[in-house]
Design a binder for these strands. Structure first.
Lengths: 147, 147
DNA sequence: AGGGTTGTAACAGCTACAGTTACGACTAAG
DNA sequence: CTTAGTCGTAACTGTAGCTGTTACAACCCT
């Protein structure tokens, strides 16, 4: 069973990335390069660029090209919640219905889809509510406290 | 991007399976075969048997072997919540930390793990709280209402 | 003109789930 | 005690997503 490697670490990486940029900017730098971030995250710069591309599309980050290029925040850390980040990078729902449509002749097969959808909607809503409670400012505060 | 096919449909299948057995038993039958269930779910009997194996390990279902064999519920539908089912079949957490440990020399790389873990624990708790609200009896009621 | 960085395509490796086939283990029924 | 039906499980394939990597064109400041 081991640790579930398939679980999404994308939210972790995204939060790490944005928090890193935020701290870097507060220390007086204009932009951060994907290489610098990748060093802190311990991964490949392309992975960071791909993620930041999605975050930019969602209006959370921005980039400059050419020499002296790099990435910056589009909003302050305090104005970005983990929900914003989550919605920027996680397209699909947590739970899915059947792949193949179940037997419509069967009472259960016919009615189970809507029944589970109602539950899943509530679960997703609760998850979003929880993620919205924490801003990247909160995350940075926790990070600095631990140091 | 499309609809996320990778999302877990296991909870859906498991709820469908147990609800089907419950209804079948209420109609006077002792046991249900994996083939019958697979027909309603529209999948392969082995998929059902594998799932039911995990559900049995969690004390939610039971089986009889030999001729006239099959599956039955270990508890009444009203005594099984979706959280029970979820915990029986989903081993890992929804979100994961970094695969490779981030740079411990970096303030963010050092502190981001615990910070995100705290958030993820809260999210998981909220998810469990939400799943615990619904029993399979509730699911069956919804299913029959839709018919 | 030069050099550093983004933006993106392409590919390999890994993991997980779904689906399928096959077959031994078990047991009720005859 | 033989038969038949079902479970229990291993093994394999196909599909999909994420990660990591290489490569290179596009871009733009100096």
């Amino acid at each position: 069973m081991e640790s579930d490697v398939s679980a999404n670490s994308r939210l972790t990486i995204a939060a790490h990335t944005l928090t890193w940029i935020g701290l870097y900017q507060r220390r007086g730098h204009e932009v951060a390069t994907s290489e610098q971030i990748a060093t802190s995250v311990n991964t490949n710069p392309v992975v960071i660029r791909r993620l930041l591309g999605e975050l930019r599309k969602a209006g959370l980050a921005d980039s400059r090209r050419g020499a002296g290029a790099g990435w910056m925040l589009a909003r302050d850390l305090a104005a970005i919640t983990l929900l914003d980040v989550y919605q920027a990078i996680e397209p699909g729902p947590i739970f899915a219905l059947h792949r193949a449509t179940p037997d419509p002749e069967c009472v259960v097969g016919h009615g189970i889809g809507p029944a589970m959808t109602a539950v899943y909607d509530d679960v997703e809503a609760a998850l979003c509510r929880e993620l919205a409670k924490t801003t990247l400012e909160d995350v940075l505060r926790d990070v600095l406290k631990a140091a």
